[in-house]
Amino acid sequence: MIFNIYIFNKEGVCIYFEEWNKKKGSANTAEDQKLLFGMLYSLKAFISTSSPKPIDPKTGFHCYKTSSYKLHFYETLSGTKFIIMTDPNTPDLREDLKKIYSNIFVEYVIKNPVYQPNTAIKCDMFINHLNAYLKQTPAFNN
């Protein structure tokens, strides 16, 4: 079951957030986003400094899991970060995150001349395609 998606740009601004299937709403989403970014940033830094050999981003940090949720993480070379949170039993969503990046984010956000970098994504085309894509993945409602 997919709970929510976050997209951060390279400056750490959360440019997109949406949630589904969640019973308990968060008290302060803006604060959550900041904390999440900070946590991922530190985690990534810690992972690369603590590793005995240089980390290949392809095999580096993919996800972590707690008893109640799993966080899937994908970062592009340009520093855009895609994060999806799901229930702990969901299989790896890395391929889906990559598809969201190349088929939806690039097509409907980056190529959209009205979209200003560093601002929140409000474009309907993106939102509709993202929702359509996620809702057809087996992980969405299981």
Binding site: T76, L77, I110
Partner: peptide
């Protein structure tokens, strides 16, 4: 972004 997405190139 389009370049990275379409070419799938690594660092």
């Amino acid at each position: 972004e389009e370049f990275l997405a379409k070419s799938g190139i690594g660092r």
